[in-house]
Simulated assay, not measured.
Amino acid sequence: MKFLKITLIILALGLTACGDSKIRKYEGPPVTSVQVHKAERKMYLLSGAKVLRQYDIGLGFKPTGHKQYEGDGRTPEGVYFIDRQNPRSSYHLSLGISYPNTADQKMAFLEGKKPGGDIFIHGRGKYNGPNKRDWTAGCIAVTDQEVEEIYAMVRVGTPIYILP
């Protein structure tokens, strides 16, 4: 009988651990747009004109200016869309940004370079380098806890305005 009780307790604890997920639920007002203000290192989630959440952000390791080509370390500027969710991100969770658009591709082509891609809003994951602020290759970084909230709130198709 004692063995059965211990087995049931272990089984219950194991099932509880399985329920611990980084994917959260959100039941508030819809996020209708995301605004990134690069100079201020702020990102806002909006529903209409109302700010639902505000975050401090990190950017590409060369934070000034619009991304022009792969490897330049810049975060793009302009109007894009959230185009995918990645629950298996190396940076905890991530939301894809639709960079490059046609204009970005043309600008890189004229420079004889590739425009790059894989620009995301993501957490820190296992990154523990010396730079706490602008350390990405062009992405927008928040804490792992914050990206869990953002991932739950922002849907694919949401416009993102990345401002200088």
Rank of each mutant, 00 (worst) to 15 (best):
K2T: 00
N86P: 12
I10A: 11
L95G: 11
V36T: 05
I140A: 13
Y99W: 05
R84E: 01
I82Y: 11
L45G: 12
K2E: 00
N131W: 01
M1E: 06
R124E: 09
T32F: 02
V79A: 15
V51A: 07
N128G: 12
V156W: 03
H66V: 13
T158E: 09
I23N: 04
G71M: 04
T102V: 14
Y80C: 10
L95R: 04
P63S: 04
F61V: 10
V51G: 02
E149R: 10
G125Q: 01
E149H: 08
T136L: 11
W135N: 02
I162M: 06
G58E: 02
Y55N: 02
P159Q: 06
S94G: 14
Y80M: 04
F81V: 07
D20M: 10
I121S: 09
T143Y: 07
G28H: 05
Y26A: 08
H37I: 03
F81E: 13
K113C: 03
E148W: 04
G117D: 05
D56L: 10
L52T: 06
D104I: 12
A152Q: 07
M1G: 14
V36L: 06
C139T: 02
I82H: 10
F120Y: 15
F3H: 04
M153F: 02
K25R: 12
I160D: 03
P159A: 08
D104F: 11
A141S: 14
I57L: 12
S21P: 15
L8A: 15
I10S: 01
P30S: 11
P76Q: 09
V142Q: 07
R155M: 14
D118L: 14
H92F: 12
V34P: 01
P164N: 13
D118V: 06
V156M: 04
S33H: 03
I162S: 04
K42N: 08
Y44L: 14
G60M: 09
G117H: 01
A17R: 00
Q68P: 00
F120P: 01
M1Y: 03
A103G: 06
K113I: 01
L59P: 00
R24C: 09
L13R: 00
R124K: 13
K50H: 04
I160R: 01
S90F: 08
